[in-house]
Computed example of a mutant assay.
Amino acid sequence: MTLCPCASGQAYADCCARPHGGEAAATALALMRSRYCAYVLGAGRLSAGYLAPVDAAAGAASGR
């Protein structure tokens, strides 16, 4: 068993592998752990996938 790098104490397959595979994280904490895990594993493409697309019109209206 390979422990998950997010320090949850669970096996990677039962922890962050699920969100990395496309399943929604159950809690905000699980989401943050999975983001950290993606970073540790060098899976930046996984981390980027968690970002919502920015609506250019909404960004311009808010001054972003």
Rank of each mutant, 00 (worst) to 15 (best):
A60G: 06
A58I: 11
S47L: 15
C15H: 08
A11P: 05
A30F: 03
P53K: 12
C6F: 00
S47R: 14
V54H: 06
C16A: 06
G22N: 11
L3C: 00
A52P: 09
A30P: 02
A30D: 06
G59E: 14
P53R: 14
C37Q: 12
P5H: 02
A7C: 10
P19D: 06
A60I: 07
C16G: 03
S47D: 11
G49W: 09
A48D: 11
A43L: 13
S8W: 01
G9D: 00
Y50C: 15
L51I: 02
G22A: 06
L3P: 01
R45S: 15
S8Y: 00
A56M: 05
A26K: 15
R33H: 12
A7H: 10
C6E: 04
A60N: 01
D55C: 14
A30L: 00
A48P: 05
D55I: 04
G21M: 05
Q10R: 08
Y12G: 01
G59Q: 10
A13R: 11
G9V: 01
E23K: 10
V40D: 10
C4F: 04
C4V: 03
C37M: 04
A17F: 05
A56W: 04
P53T: 15
G42E: 06
C6Q: 03
Q10F: 02
S34H: 09
R18K: 15
R33A: 13
R35A: 15
G42C: 09
S62M: 09
T27Y: 03
A38V: 05
A30Q: 12
S47I: 14
E23M: 05
L31F: 10
R45C: 00
C6L: 10
P53F: 07
Y39V: 11
Q10G: 00
A57G: 02
A7T: 13
R33V: 04
R33Q: 13
Y12N: 00
R64K: 10
T2D: 09
S8M: 01
D55L: 05
M1V: 08
R45K: 11
R18A: 09
A38F: 02
S8R: 06
H20L: 15
S34M: 04
A38S: 12
G59L: 15
G44D: 14
A28Q: 15
T27H: 01
Y36V: 08
R64T: 01
A43K: 10
G22I: 07
L46Q: 03
A60E: 12
C37L: 04
L31Y: 04
G44K: 04
V40Y: 03
D55R: 11
G22S: 10
A56Q: 05
Y36D: 14
A24V: 12
L41V: 08
A58E: 11
A38E: 01
A56P: 13
G21Q: 08
L51N: 07
R35E: 08
A11M: 00
C37D: 02
A43I: 07
A61I: 08
A56H: 08
Y36W: 13
A58Q: 07
D14A: 09
S8Q: 00
A61G: 14
V54A: 13
D55M: 02
V54S: 07
Y12R: 01
Y50D: 11
R35S: 01
C16Y: 02
A58G: 05
A17P: 02
Q10L: 06
A25K: 02
A26S: 12
A58L: 09
G59S: 13
Q10N: 08
C16R: 01
R64C: 06
A17Y: 00
G22E: 14
